[in-house]
Design a protein around this nucleic acid. Structure first.
Lengths: 206, 206
DNA sequence: GCCTGAAAATGAACATTGTTCAAGAAAAAT
DNA sequence: ATTTTTCTTGAACAATGTTCATTTTCAGGC
């Protein structure tokens, strides 16, 4: 018998349903926030039993983390699509791409940063590493703009800059406590990046 | 009969227990995070029934919000204690005070920013206003440092600066995804503030 | 000191929701 | 066709927020 074919037939179905469950969960989170996600709703929407969700993801956290994993992957993909020719443009592009993603997927991003594990189980290493990698994407352009600075220093600078951008955006998009009016956010964010770069001795067109 | 005295006797007891409930809830949140807070635990620890907690706070959110309200009040008090003589020192002092508070009360601050209301009930206006006020505390010193800029512009600058500081700190203190090593956080935060001020055309001792 | 009505406290019962697992169904292997 | 393995199911369970009829408390009047 053809193991590959037979196995794949079952697996394809399994994978298909897994993808369906993830998609449904993502829609719930995106639409109404992480707290609105219920195992029973997901199972019913997918046309399977509660137990199947557990078979697939182990527990509820497993499902959430799977969605979050894909969220950080999508975010990273978007950040990596920013043109790299001009390092200054790239930095602005990264900030703007982050803002764009946060605007379009506010609840998914919140789920990524606000979800706490049950009990004291450790946060999955791989998601952690992916978020760190995303936050390190300002490193390369900053190195080009600050060739004389200690690389370790630049590494920290880039993560701080990204953290700052994250703070401005995540508070700015919070409907409650609007630190910065959303309609101005894009322009102001660019201004912030410029100001900070100026403080680092980098001027536009220099 | 003495209405004031008689009423106060009952009320004192009520207020005393209310304070006890809040204190217990705060301890739970501070020690193990918002998710660890359970009505039954609080009631048992306070030596009263579950129903009494509901009598006092209406529902579970009511208790959480009361703790959060006191958290933002404590934060504001700490920020307002920063000396105002030198605006530049004040800005650094505000950032440092925020870092100090966030370090000592990481879970309480998280509870303030991460708690979502049940259903779609609106977030309490008063807490919102208090957080906004706290975030506006960088405004006064920045006005003094930038007397020629449009005041509206400075208002936004100050909130952005505070949001940025918030982002750096909240991600920096997250045990997972450490964007900036905690032991360097204080020094780096000061550096960040200096850099940004430099970008705004403000130099130390100028 | 006792009575009375209002206010507060109680906790059993309920509703929601994550989790488990024994039994059954389906698929694969022989 | 039979056996074995694997997956699926959903009833039952456990944890936890919430309600409310009953009981208790207590100030105010006699």
């Amino acid at each position: 018998m053809n193991i590959v074919q037979e196995k794949s037939r079952r697996d394809r179905k399994k994978l298909q349903r897994r993808a369906l469950l993830i998609e449904i969960a993502r829609r719930y989170i995106a639409a109404k926030g992480l707290r609105s996600l219920k195992v029973r709703d997901v199972a019913e929407a997918a046309g399977c039993s509660i137990g199947s969700v557990y078979n697939e993801f182990g527990d509820f956290d497993g499902l959430i983390l799977t969605v979050n994993r894909e969220t950080v992957q999508a975010l990273t993909a978007r950040l990596k699509a920013v043109p790299v020719e001009d390092p200054l443009r790239q930095l602005h592009g990264l900030a703007d791409a982050y803002l764009g993603f946060a605007t379009e997927h506010a609840n998914l991003l919140r789920s990524l940063f606000e979800h706490r594990m049950e009990d004291d189980r450790p946060f999955p290493e791989d998601i952690l590493a992916m978020v760190m990698d995303a936050f390190a994407l300002m490193h390369a352009p900053l190195v080009r703009l600050l060739p004389d600075r200690d690389p370790d220093d630049v590494a920290l600078l880039s993560r701080m800059m990204f953290s700052a951008v994250h703070g401005i955006i995540s508070l700015g998009l919070e409907e409650r406590m609007v630190a910065v009016p959303p309609e101005q956010l894009r322009e102001r964010l660019a201004q912030f990046v410029d100001t900070h770069l100026a403080g680092l001795g980098i001027t536009r067109g220099a």
